[in-house]
Design a protein around this nucleic acid. Structure first.
Length: 332
DNA sequence: CATCGATGTTGAG
DNA sequence: TCAACCTCGATGG
């Protein structure tokens, strides 16, 4: 259930541990057997994310497109936690990242940046007691690899030292380069892909010509890429902007501000693996907010609770089938 | 143990 | 506008 930041982080994992490697591809669950056979034995040559879509390239311009949808997830294990190149047996989830703050970061062999972020490894925790010495770790790492697939694994991508299991995706298909371009062409700008100024102009143009509430436009992946329900609510609050305001009625500088804030928040999200949206708070409040996952945002999932700025009850309404949270007093 | 809901998208009606 | 997709953690008995 990722928004754009998680998908960029997953692509980074593939870039670090799979690109350049020959990949054994299979579909333990069976539903992607044909696609897996097209990939099996090829070398992965690129991994990139655009918004919530991820594209893995293999020899001969064979591409795998994956969209996790609302409950899809990648599970990594094997030598994926060690940025320093040492073998560290661990498992990490590529889709859920919000439990990182509470997760221990003392995994053997884990580089601070690569582990502390993508996921909080239920299976890693299992292993931690055994990781008393390096040799114990190496033995354990070698003997259990590759692990049996757990549950309904649509695709397994395997190298000599690392494995990635995909389950529950909304989309998983093999494309050629033209097919990939077709998908990307339909997407709005992504701050991590598009040039900052060009992206800003594209988003501006796409919002200004629509008589549609900005609360819906921010979720529209053809307007701007990577924003989901959490970032939508938080970005609108940070701008003190009424979700019902029509795109066409918004001042230009307000729209530019939305793009710049998204660019900023996405960068923070990719760097930290968390949706940190309350950076306006002082240190103490911030620490409190990070402790509870429920208390981490300005308005998201805070229906009926007092606004952190003005005390007015946060409102939730259903918009296009999704829950939209906002402060009716601050956001005008 | 059963049920609910979720950081999403698509396609039927 | 709404259900389907398909998985799993959280919640309630």
């Amino acid at each position: 259930m990722p928004e754009g930041h998680s998908v960029h982080r997953i692509a980074r994992q593939f870039g670090r541990h799979f690109v350049g490697e020959r990949i054994s591809a299979s579909s333990p669950q069976g539903r992607f057997a044909e696609g897996a056979s097209l990939i099996d034995g090829r070398v992965m040559t690129d991994a990139k994310a655009v918004g919530k879509q991820m594209f893995l390239e293999f020899d001969d311009a064979v591409w795998l497109r994956v969209h996790l949808g609302i409950y899809g997830a990648w599970d990594f294990s094997g030598a994926v936690a060690s940025a320093a190149g040492r073998m560290g047996q661990t498992g990490m989830r590529g889709a859920s990242d919000d439990d990182v703050a509470a997760a221990p970061t003392t995994v053997v062999g884990a580089h601070e940046e690569s582990l502390a972020s993508i996921g909080a490894p239920r299976r890693t925790r299992l292993r931690m007691a055994e990781q008393e010495s390096e040799s114990a770790l190496d033995d354990a790492a070698l003997e259990g690899f590759p692990p049996e697939p757990i549950g309904a694994v649509r695709v397994r991508l395997l190298t000599e030292r690392a494995v990635a299991d995909l389950r529950g995706p909304t989309a998983c298909e093999v494309l050629d380069a033209a097919g990939v371009q077709q998908v990307i062409d339909k997407l709005g700008p992504d701050p991590l892909i598009d040039d900052a100024d060009a992206g800003e102009e594209r988003m501006l143009a796409r919002i200004r010509r629509r008589r549609v509430p900005i609360g819906l436009l921010l979720m529209d992946q053809s307007v701007v890429s990577g924003i989901g329900n959490v970032y939508r609510a938080e970005i609108l609050f940070r701008a003190r902007l009424d979700p019902h305001a029509l795109g066409a009625n918004l001042p230009e500088d307000v729209i530019r501000g939305l793009w710049r804030d998204w660019r900023y928040l996405l960068g923070v999200g990719v760097d930290t693996g968390q949706m940190l949206t309350m950076d306006g708070l002082d240190e103490e409040a911030r620490r409190l907010a990070l402790r509870n996952r429920a208390d981490r945002h300005w308005v998201y999932k805070r229906e009926g609770l007092p606004c952190r700025v003005c005390g007015t009850h946060i409102v939730m309404e259903i918009a296009a089938g999704r829950k939209l949270y906002y402060c009716p007093s601050c956001q005008v």
